[in-house]
Write a protein that binds this DNA or RNA. Structure first.
Lengths: 252, 252
DNA sequence: CGGCAAGTTGAGCCAGGTCAACTCCGGTGG
DNA sequence: CCACCGGAGTTGACCTGGCTCAACTTGCCG
């Protein structure tokens, strides 16, 4: 059957095109069913997946872009609890409103709302596809735990350094290149890391002043000194104060 | 076949005894295989599951107690990124050391290292059991995301209030009772919430002074004013300053 | 080219981190 | 049974990283 049965809307979707992702593991029939009964959707910055819609379409797959899970506090403060990107599948079946944030696009995002029935059937019978989504969910879980650890005790500069590495790890064709895409705005970055946009700005400037990285554009940066950035991310206190290290060297 | 095939070591394990948990969904044969090839282990406070051991036994199920995932920074600061309790199954298959913390017991913990082969087989063929672990992993993921959101922007008092509710939600027989078990030490609590033990102590004292809760013992507390605690947890700024609200009332 | 949101810079301040001293409590041994 | 010990928890005094607020610049989109 091969390609011939593939619907147009699926052909260019990352979930199908990338051999590591979910739809690439479906049989012709499964793909056909899922394709027919699912709904793609293109979102722009600020668009929200409403609760109402999520009741009937609780399984969301990301084709491209960055979707955020946001928690809103009563007084208006908000935080981004997680970032979902290409290939991530968000399963909200039977999740109480209580412990769930809103899903909000941070830019142009293409998603596919997977038909729950078909999704369930595939999960049960197709062990290849099952493995893919299991690993994806596990990644989401561990990523969230890492992130918790990061923002719990790290200082601003360290959080930012960790975030740069998180971006590098997640970007699609990451070799060991030193260019890193920053797929979110400064404001969103601040909310994700639990800090103020002003602080983010100051920290980037600090890292630039020290020659550790360059930020010629807002949506990408170049790491000039990977080991140093890594040490900062890992919480090596020696690296923190701009000047203290130099003083130490002088004394020695 | 019924009970007769059940090994002694499994009979009293939560994973089997609780109908909602993993082993309760296994067929007689599956249970027998898993039981034979798995290894139970009793840990005490401070015990760590070493990497070496986890390579061969990467799937860990919690029978009782609290296991923590800790991240250690280079300068000695540490954080607890996640808490695992009764019924949680931790799947570390193929997880790089990189993004994983150490698994450390916070008290007496009984675990079962599930035989990976059998675990995989069950995941593939037993859709009931599959559903249980899927939901468990999903809980872990969302819990971690919630937690990220909490510690990112909330103030100390708010974090503590949220934690009390997290404990209440997770405790086994929670009705709407006002007694909440705090299954971890103050120090661990502080590390989980990204604050100092001193601050935890001060915050509890503050909540007590305001008549919102009582802490007669270290490992349990009684909520006296649930709605108020909830408002604090949700970041209602009116609730924060001890005295400001009283002032407002006086003016009105 | 104008308008608006995003980002940056500067100055001041406060929540909570830090350090030190003290109390409490459970376990251990004489 | 009590004396002792060490880790956990608490309290107080002080200090600082990053939040706040305000003014400004930049960049993007129609």
């Amino acid at each position: 059957m091969g390609q011939s049965g593939v619907k147009d809307k699926c052909k260019n979707c990352a979930l199908y095109a990338d051999a590591d992702l979910f739809c690439a593991h479906l049989s012709g029939e499964e793909l056909c069913d899922l394709s027919n009964q699912s709904r793609t959707l293109s979102m722009k910055r600020g668009d929200t997946l409403e609760n109402e819609a999520l009741v009937h379409w609780p399984v969301v797959a990301i084709d491209s872009g960055v979707l955020s899970m946001q928690h809103l506090l009563q007084d208006g403060r908000k935080t981004i609890a997680a970032l979902f990107m290409r290939g991530d599948i968000i399963d909200l079946r039977n999740i109480s409103n209580r412990n769930r944030g809103a899903l909000i696009a941070l830019g142009k995002v293409d998603i596919c709302r997977l038909a729950p029935k078909v999704f369930e059937r595939v999960m049960e019978h197709n062990s290849g596809a099952q493995k893919v989504i299991w690993e994806n969910l596990r990644d989401q879980a561990f990523r969230a735990m890492d992130h918790s650890g990061d923002i719990a005790k790290k200082q601003a500069l360290e959080k930012l350094a960790s975030f740069v590495f998180e971006c590098r790890n997640r970007q699609v064709g990451y070799g060991e290149g030193d260019w890193v895409d920053i797929p979110v705005r400064r404001i969103d970055l601040a909310e994700y890391l639990g800090m103020q946009p002003e602080t983010v700005s100051r920290c980037f400037k600090d890292l630039e002043k020290r020659g550790i990285l360059e930020t010629p554009r807002l949506n990408a940066l170049k790491i000039l000194n990977v080991p140093m950035l890594r040490r900062i991310a890992n919480g090596d206190k020696d690296m923190l104060a701009s000047e203290s290290r130099i003083k130490v060297l002088k004394i020695a």
